[in-house]
């Protein structure tokens, strides 16, 4: 089947097998290897990307389902050399060790913050329930997400690091 997908701001048109998973399309056709596969059963969330601004597990979606949609991966978050505030917060709060779950964890966190810009610890823990991490025990991830929420508040930090209101923004999650 022929599909046209926008990935990290670039439009691609490709022939794909109907059974090809979105994550394999991203990794193998487009070389977007920042997004990874952890479990095949949608439990671990390592493959999380945004489809039209909302998080989806790309191992549980066919590439053809992304036809005429906009996909944002971990590789499309930083703009003009500036990290997304959630990426920055993960670094500053030591919210990763091996880093394999990190792309999915960051994408899910951005989605979570779009729904609740000032989440409690409890809300963050439940919001990340579909993303597994084997290294960190989650404590610093929770801290990072809440720190990012703080940094992303209106008026907090330089403008370049704030989530843009445009719905086409990569990773805004609105």
């Amino acid at each position: 089947m022929r599909i046209t997908v926008s990935v990290d701001g670039v439009s691609y048109t490709d022939e794909v097998e109907p059974r090809m998973l979105l994550v394999h399309y991203l990794r193998e056709r487009l070389g977007k290897t920042g997004t990874v596969v952890g479990c095949d059963t949608s439990n671990c969330g390592a493959c999380t990307v945004h489809l039209d601004g909302h998080s989806v597990k790309s191992c549980s979606m066919f590439a053809v389902q992304a036809d005429r949609h906009e996909v944002t991966t971990i590789e499309g978050l930083a703009r003009d050399g500036q990290l997304h505030p959630v990426q920055k917060a993960f670094h500053e709060n030591h919210a990763l060790q091996c880093g394999f779950c990190t792309p999915g964890m960051i994408m899910q966190s951005i989605d979570l913050l779009a729904d609740d810009p000032d989440p409690s610890e409890e809300t963050v823990r439940h919001g990340l329930e579909g993303n597994l991490c084997r290294c960190t025990g989650y404590q610093n991830i929770v801290k990072a997400v809440r720190d990012a929420a703080h940094q992303m508040r209106p008026g907090a930090g330089p403008e370049a690091e704030q989530v843009a209101p445009s719905p086409s923004h990569a990773g805004g999650g609105e």
Partner: peptide, 21 residues
């Protein structure tokens, strides 16, 4: 110290074995 490793891991600029083509 914040980790040196993080820069590639938070941006997806990683070198997992399965990435190799």
């Amino acid at each position: 110290r914040l980790r040196k490793e993080d820069a590639r891991l938070i941006t997806g600029d990683t070198r997992w074995t399965d990435n190799i083509q």
